Lab assay of single mutants.
Amino acid sequence: AEKTGIVNVSSSLNVREGASTSSKVIGSLSGNTKVTIVGEEGAFYKIEYKGSHGYVAKEYIKDIKDE
């Protein structure tokens, strides 16, 4: 049951290796980017990222929809 969301930041949002603010940053997404959410862990969504997965803070994702 995948969902999509939109990155809701003015600059960019860090994509992390794990569901923690201390996890390594593996990339970033600019505002209004559409993401595919494959799961959630605590305050983070697990998303599809560059052929693999990454984690982003839930508070910066809006317009969550079921695909």
Results as ranks from 00 to 15, higher is better:
residue 5 G to E: 02
residue 20 S to R: 07
residue 20 S to E: 06
residue 21 T to G: 15
residue 16 R to C: 05
residue 7 V to E: 02
residue 10 S to A: 15
residue 7 V to G: 03
residue 56 V to H: 00
residue 2 E to A: 12
residue 4 T to C: 06
residue 33 T to C: 06
residue 61 I to A: 01
residue 62 K to N: 14
residue 23 S to K: 04
residue 40 E to G: 04
residue 18 G to V: 09
residue 32 N to K: 08
residue 59 E to F: 08
residue 63 D to C: 07
residue 48 E to M: 13
residue 54 G to Y: 04
residue 36 T to F: 15
residue 55 Y to M: 01
residue 31 G to L: 13
residue 28 S to V: 14
residue 40 E to T: 08
residue 11 S to E: 11
residue 1 A to M: 11
residue 41 E to P: 01
residue 35 V to Y: 02
residue 29 L to G: 00
residue 24 K to D: 06
residue 55 Y to V: 00
residue 65 K to Q: 13
residue 46 K to Q: 08
residue 66 D to V: 08
residue 12 S to G: 11
residue 39 G to E: 05
residue 56 V to N: 00
residue 16 R to F: 13
residue 48 E to P: 10
residue 6 I to F: 06
residue 11 S to H: 10
residue 4 T to G: 05
residue 27 G to Y: 05
residue 37 I to M: 03
residue 23 S to R: 04
residue 55 Y to Q: 00
residue 42 G to N: 09
residue 2 E to V: 13
residue 46 K to F: 05
residue 11 S to L: 13
residue 33 T to L: 06
residue 43 A to Q: 12
residue 41 E to F: 15
residue 4 T to H: 10
residue 43 A to V: 11
residue 5 G to F: 03
residue 10 S to I: 13
residue 10 S to M: 14
residue 42 G to M: 05
residue 28 S to M: 14
residue 19 A to F: 04
residue 9 V to K: 14
residue 23 S to I: 02
residue 41 E to R: 07
residue 8 N to G: 10
residue 62 K to C: 08
residue 66 D to R: 04
residue 16 R to P: 00
residue 38 V to F: 07
residue 65 K to N: 14
residue 8 N to S: 12
residue 26 I to P: 00
residue 26 I to L: 11
residue 46 K to P: 00
residue 37 I to C: 02
residue 34 K to T: 13
residue 37 I to Q: 00
residue 9 V to A: 12
residue 45 Y to P: 00
residue 66 D to Y: 07
residue 27 G to H: 02
residue 7 V to M: 03
residue 4 T to N: 07
residue 62 K to R: 15
residue 42 G to K: 06
residue 59 E to S: 10
residue 48 E to Q: 13
residue 43 A to T: 10
residue 33 T to G: 04
residue 27 G to K: 01
residue 48 E to I: 12
residue 51 G to N: 11
residue 48 E to G: 05
residue 21 T to M: 13
residue 65 K to I: 13
residue 25 V to D: 03
residue 13 L to N: 02
residue 1 A to C: 07
residue 27 G to R: 02
residue 24 K to N: 11
residue 43 A to N: 14
residue 7 V to Y: 01
residue 15 V to A: 01
residue 47 I to P: 00
residue 50 K to C: 08
residue 12 S to K: 12
residue 26 I to V: 07
residue 23 S to A: 12
residue 47 I to A: 00
residue 20 S to C: 06
residue 62 K to L: 11
residue 41 E to T: 09
residue 24 K to C: 06
residue 47 I to W: 00
residue 61 I to Y: 02
residue 39 G to R: 04
residue 39 G to P: 00
residue 60 Y to D: 08
residue 63 D to Q: 13
residue 62 K to H: 13
residue 26 I to N: 02
residue 7 V to Q: 02
residue 65 K to R: 13
residue 16 R to K: 06
residue 19 A to N: 04
residue 31 G to I: 09
residue 14 N to A: 11
residue 40 E to M: 09
residue 56 V to W: 00
residue 15 V to M: 03
residue 40 E to P: 02
residue 42 G to C: 05
residue 58 K to A: 06
residue 33 T to S: 10
residue 59 E to L: 14
residue 12 S to D: 12
residue 25 V to M: 06
residue 45 Y to L: 06
residue 67 E to H: 13
residue 19 A to H: 05
residue 42 G to V: 03
residue 12 S to N: 14
residue 39 G to I: 02
residue 63 D to K: 10
residue 52 S to E: 10
residue 22 S to Q: 11
residue 67 E to M: 09
residue 43 A to I: 09
residue 58 K to G: 02
residue 39 G to T: 04
residue 42 G to L: 06
residue 25 V to T: 07
residue 19 A to S: 10
residue 27 G to A: 04
residue 3 K to Y: 05
residue 5 G to H: 04
residue 60 Y to R: 05
residue 18 G to Q: 10
residue 22 S to K: 13
residue 48 E to W: 12
residue 26 I to A: 02
residue 27 G to T: 02
residue 13 L to K: 02
residue 11 S to D: 15
residue 53 H to W: 10
residue 25 V to E: 04
residue 15 V to P: 00
residue 67 E to R: 07
residue 66 D to K: 07
residue 9 V to H: 11
residue 20 S to G: 07
residue 59 E to Y: 10
residue 49 Y to M: 03
residue 45 Y to K: 01
residue 34 K to N: 05
residue 41 E to G: 03
residue 21 T to L: 13
residue 27 G to I: 03
residue 30 S to Q: 12
residue 17 E to A: 11
residue 59 E to C: 07
residue 53 H to F: 14
residue 21 T to P: 14
residue 3 K to T: 09
residue 36 T to N: 10
residue 34 K to Y: 09
residue 26 I to W: 03
residue 9 V to N: 08
residue 45 Y to M: 02
residue 23 S to W: 03
residue 17 E to G: 08
residue 40 E to I: 07
residue 1 A to V: 09
residue 17 E to R: 07
residue 24 K to G: 06
residue 59 E to A: 10
residue 44 F to T: 03
residue 20 S to A: 08
residue 15 V to W: 02
residue 61 I to P: 01
residue 51 G to R: 07
residue 10 S to K: 11
residue 20 S to L: 07
residue 63 D to M: 14
residue 62 K to Y: 13
residue 14 N to S: 13
residue 37 I to V: 05
residue 48 E to H: 09
residue 15 V to D: 00
residue 33 T to N: 06
residue 33 T to V: 13
residue 66 D to I: 12
residue 38 V to I: 12
residue 23 S to H: 10
residue 50 K to L: 14
residue 25 V to K: 06
residue 34 K to V: 14
residue 33 T to H: 09
residue 54 G to S: 03
residue 5 G to A: 05
residue 41 E to I: 13
residue 26 I to E: 01
residue 51 G to K: 09
residue 64 I to N: 06
residue 13 L to P: 06
residue 67 E to A: 13
residue 49 Y to G: 01
residue 63 D to A: 11
residue 44 F to N: 03
residue 12 S to F: 11
residue 37 I to Y: 01
residue 14 N to Y: 14
residue 3 K to C: 05
residue 59 E to H: 09
residue 24 K to M: 10
residue 55 Y to C: 00
residue 63 D to S: 09
residue 67 E to T: 12
residue 26 I to G: 01
residue 64 I to C: 06
residue 47 I to G: 00
residue 41 E to S: 09
residue 65 K to P: 10
residue 16 R to Q: 12
residue 9 V to W: 04
residue 45 Y to E: 00
residue 52 S to D: 06
residue 47 I to Q: 00
residue 55 Y to H: 02
residue 34 K to A: 07
